[in-house]
């Protein structure tokens, strides 16, 4: 039964992983100055390894020391962070679309992005940008907590109530954000830059932080089967033995945790969390056991290329500009193709 679909999904997985590896290598090479792939590899592999393990500088082992610095100190953290943030946003978007049974949902739907933006604006206006990632994370996660708490009655938080509370709270946070922007004076452009999202200041410590995104994604994948059933509707999920309220809590908090980390690293980048799950559902089907990994890899690749394009050709324009500029027409194209079929 269904072996045809399984074989196809296997092929899709292979293509996705291959594309990811290729993108990684290419995006390390491409940039304002192109670095040949040959200079990625140390000329003395074992010497470099020994030096790395003993904590010494490995730069001298590479054929071109400048190329080494560009690739491993500047580009690689940025490339990995883009990949992980894209993957995280796609996974959180998939989770929200499954929870709300709506392919128009995204990771920010229950106030996450406006909460994060408000947190960031507070840090920029009052602390001159100090602890900005922390404030953004607290804003994102805090907004989710608040929405959940407000939507809960008698221990239950119906999905519709969550959605409406999220919308209402988003509006509320946005008005505070508007007030902060209005009174921000000279730091206004900083807030706007942050809100568009980008990877300008990313370093290896951000990559270390984004490992947490992987942890969150693993949790989501573990619960993929439960999400399949929840996406049939809450009552059906109760009948089929899902502990609905507990699972919703896990789903909301893991997703907002992932989103919070992503936002803290790169600002609120839109469209990835909306379009990637949707597109991958068309490709691999709605089963979240396959959809989660596929959307993660695709989201990672998408954001990686968007960032590579902006830093190479567009003078490091905010990457959020690119994702929507490319994503929206593609999305419309898909919708039209699907409605014709």
């Amino acid at each position: 039964m269904l072996t045809g679909a399984k074989r196809r999904n296997g092929a899709v997985a292979l293509v996705l992983v291959g594309a990811m590896l290729l993108s990684l290598v290419l995006s390390l090479s491409i940039g304002p100055s192109t670095v040949p792939i040959s200079s990625f590899v140390p000329s003395d592999l074992f010497g470099a390894l020994a030096a790395f393990l003993s904590g010494e500088d490995v730069a001298p082992f590479f054929p071109d020391e400048t190329a080494y610095l560009i690739v491993y100190s500047v580009r690689m953290p940025r490339v990995l962070a883009a990949l992980l943030v894209g993957a995280g946003l796609a996974a959180a978007g998939t989770a929200m679309q499954g929870l709300f049974r709506n392919s128009m949902a995204d990771p920010y739907i229950i106030g996450t992005s406006s909460g994060a933006a408000m947190g960031a604006a507070v840090a920029i206006v009052f602390l001159g940008g100090m602890f900005l990632p922390v404030f953004a994370f607290v804003g994102a996660a805090g907004a989710t907590f608040l929405v959940y708490a407000l939507a809960t009655r008698n221990g239950r938080a119906p999905v519709e109530t969550l959605l409406l509370t999220g919308v209402a709270l988003s509006m509320f946070f946005s008005s505070i954000l508007s007030f902060l922007m209005y009174s921000a004076g000279k730091s206004l452009h900083q807030i706007i830059y942050w809100m568009m999202g980008g990877f300008w200041t990313v370093g290896w410590d951000d990559v270390a932080l984004s490992i947490l995104i992987i942890a969150g994604c693993v949790i989501l994948i573990v619960y993929a089967k439960d999400l399949n059933i929840l996406s049939l509707g809450e009552e059906d999920a109760v009948h089929l033995g899902v502990n609905v309220e507990t699972f919703k809590r896990i789903l909301l908090f893991v997703s907002s945790f992932i989103t919070g980390i992503a936002v803290a690293i790169a600002g609120s980048i839109g469209f990835i969390g909306l379009i990637t799950p949707h597109v991958m559902r068309l490709v691999v089907g709605p089963d979240h056991r396959m959809l989660f990994p596929a959307a993660m890899v695709a989201g990672g690749i998408f954001l990686l290329w968007a960032d590579t394009v902006t830093r190479t050709f567009l003078g490091d324009m905010p990457v959020g500009v690119i994702t929507a500029f490319v994503g929206a027409p593609f999305f419309v194209f898909l919708l039209r193709r699907r409605s014709r079929a």
Binding site: L2, R101, L232, P286
Partner: peptide, 8 residues
Amino acid sequence: GFSYTVGD
């Protein structure tokens, strides 16, 4: 909501 197959 989503296009699961009947078998799924």
